[in-house]
């Protein structure tokens, strides 16, 4: 937040003396918020006010996080229940014991690191593809007026469509697999990037362009020395917005058809009523979203000086 975002509202009273070493209000009240929510979340299901299956609880989430991060990656040894008690004999056909369960090996679909890795791959490939194509398309649309006029109606129409509605079509065309996820992520992210870059090309300051023109700068030089630098902040903003959309794409693509990934993990846990795992997946997603957003925002701030004043 820049200086402009300082609270403008408030009384002009002298600053009160504060206890040295006291955290700032922002940190203090942020912590108070957590201290209200977390115990409440833990208590509500315990008191029976809300069903545990709909809300889970922080402690359950922590324990399931440890379990799923540390469980073996490939197979899990579980005791499967048998329909009837079975008798176990040794090699000499002597009766040893009766058992109700039998240890079996099952694929560990809930191993979190591998699920995270699958989603990360889909996210990175899809998003980078969207960034490259989106930026190129945006620049082309901004530079070639006639091209823009030609495709503008389609662009507006697709931008107004919730592209999620096309996921069933994408599944039909590309099947279920890595390609389908990439296409969904790409489609979710590309248009917001393109449109932001397009507005950036349009926002290149007139006076800079005029100066370049009066020095007889070629079309190419005008592009590389005026339009491109002034579009950089917009490219970064578009990428930040696209990164959020891409995350939606990963989740929805995995919700609707997948056998691995964070979206699969959340969906699988939801259908087996393991709300603690659903919450864990949701928290990981949110953290991932915050980290990526913050990263791009850092880079964006660095280029903020380049941003032309809008109008």
């Amino acid at each position: 937040m820049s200086a402009a975002a300082q609270p403008a509202v408030g009384r002009a009273v002298p600053r009160r003396w504060r206890f040295p070493g006291r955290p700032s209000d922002r940190v203090l009240y942020g912590l108070i918020g957590f201290l209200i929510v977390l115990p409440l979340w833990e208590l509500l299901p315990t008191l029976g006010l809300v069903k545990r299956v709909t809300l889970s609880s922080p402690s359950a989430i922590v324990s399931v996080a440890i379990q799923d991060f540390t469980s073996p990656a490939e197979y899990l040894r579980i005791n499967a229940p048998l329909n009837l008690s079975s008798r176990v004999w040794n090699s000499g056909y002597e009766y040893i014991a009766s058992v109700d369960t039998w240890p079996i090996m099952v694929p560990n679909v809930l191993h979190l690191p591998s699920n995270l890795w699958v989603s990360a791959q889909e996210y990175m490939v899809g998003f980078l593809l969207a960034a490259v194509t989106g930026i190129l398309l945006g620049l082309a649309l901004g530079l070639f007026r006639r091209f823009r006029y030609l495709v503008e109606p389609w662009l507006d129409a697709i931008n107004a469509t919730p592209t999620i509605a096309l996921v069933p079509l994408i599944i039909l065309v590309f099947g279920i697999g890595f390609t389908q996820k990439i296409v969904v992520v790409w489609l979710e992210a590309i248009f917001v990037i393109t449109l932001t870059v397009l507005s950036g090309v349009g926002a290149a300051e007139k006076k800079h362009l005029d100066t370049a023109l009066s020095f007889k700068a070629s079309r190419r030089l005008r592009f590389t020395s005026v339009i491109l630098p002034s579009s950089v902040p917009f490219i970064l903003t578009g990428m930040r917005l696209g990164a959020t959309r891409a995350l939606v794409g990963v989740v929805v693509a995995e919700f609707l058809a997948s056998n691995a990934g964070l979206g699969f993990y959340i969906n699988f846990s939801g259908t087996t009523l393991r709300t603690d795992r659903v919450m864990l997946g949701v928290i990981l997603l949110g953290m991932f979203g915050i980290i990526v957003g913050e990263l791009i925002r850092r880079i964006e701030r660095r280029f903020d000086k380049w941003r032309p004043a809008l109008r």
Partner: peptide
């Protein structure tokens, strides 16, 4: 409220569908 608003804003809300 700020941490919560930021968290939910960064989170794809559709991920909450199973819950």
């Amino acid at each position: 409220l700020d941490p919560w608003l930021n968290f939910f804003n960064a989170l794809p809300r559709v991920a909450l569908l199973p819950i």
